[in-house]
């Protein structure tokens, strides 16, 4: 296999006296879905925010395509080809699908001295990209508020892919979704991966991770508990690692395996 698209080496992040990340290393290859698992507070969000340029790591190096990067803002990481889809911040409900899709990347048409948005192109592309992802819009001016949670995630994923993301970071895209919508989003993640894009998929649901993941890294209290490839580890082991082992094992007994 070729060299990884992104290598995060020994990333540490301190917020004042709090060590949110105590040296986390992962790498992600093109066309791979790398699942990042961990319980709430494990440091998943902080970690991906160092990847997407929201936080500057206290120490550690980020190699993207073999080049060392220093992201000062989300804009920097976006320009490098890293797109992040946040769970609840993916879309603006009151704006139309087209306006959301092109937000920050609006197509410009010159109209004499005037520069206006090329809505004809924007609408056509939006409809086409949505259709590819299996969403049939009533019209490009439909407000995002009318879409379901899964469809919103899908619009955000389609947007990232269309604008040439090489690395797609998905922050708990399935955590608030129903069964069918989750299946749709997972299917779209699979599609994106097969198109050769590297995917970092954050979740605390082991079954969702097992469905599409190629490799799994578990974070716990700001440290990685190791990375395992598909087939090397089963769902129970992942679950145990996430929860820190014994307590959950004991709990699981009394709950009858529902966790």
């Amino acid at each position: 296999m070729a060299s990884p698209l992104i290598e995060m080496k020994n990333i540490e992040k301190h917020f004042g006296p709090v060590i949110a990340l105590g040296g986390v290393s992962i790498d992600v290859y093109r066309g791979e879905c790398h699942c990042l698992l961990g319980d709430n507070g494990a440091g998943k969000s902080t970690f991906i925010k160092t990847m997407s340029g929201v936080h500057k790591p206290t120490s550690g190096t980020i190699l993207f395509d073999g080049v060392e990067m220093h992201f000062d803002s989300p804009r920097d990481s976006m320009e490098a080809g890293i797109a992040t889809v946040y769970q609840d911040l993916a879309m603006i409900p009151l704006m139309s699908v087209t306006r959301n899709f092109w937000m920050g990347n609006e197509p410009i048409k010159r109209f004499g001295p005037l520069k206006v948005m090329d809505f004809k192109k924007a609408n056509a592309v939006t409809m086409e990209e949505m259709r590819k992802m299996g969403i049939n819009l009533r019209g490009p001016d439909q407000a995002v508020g009318t879409l379901s949670g899964g469809e919103r995630q899908t619009v955000a994923i389609a947007r990232a892919v269309y604008f040439g993301a090489k690395l797609l970071i998905l922050d708990e895209p399935t955590s608030a979704l129903g069964v069918r919508q989750t299946a749709n989003v997972l299917a779209n993640i699979d599609k994106v991966r097969k198109a050769g894009i590297a995917v970092v998929f954050i979740t605390h649901n082991v079954r969702h991770a097992m469905a599409v993941g190629d490799r799994f890294t578990v974070l716990n209290r700001g440290k990685t508990l190791g990375t395992a490839a598909r087939g090397e580890i089963n769902a129970e082991e992942l679950q145990d690692m996430m929860a820190g082992g014994q307590e959950l094992a004991a709990l699981e007994g009394s709950l009858g395996g529902t966790v």
Partner: peptide, 21 residues
């Protein structure tokens, strides 16, 4: 215009808008 889209975005959800640049 593009700027108009930014006006909507800034008021709709400033953080989401920042994240897409």
């Amino acid at each position: 215009t593009q700027f108009g889209n930014w006006i909507f975005a800034a008021g709709g959800d400033a953080q989401a808008a920042r994240y897409v640049g």
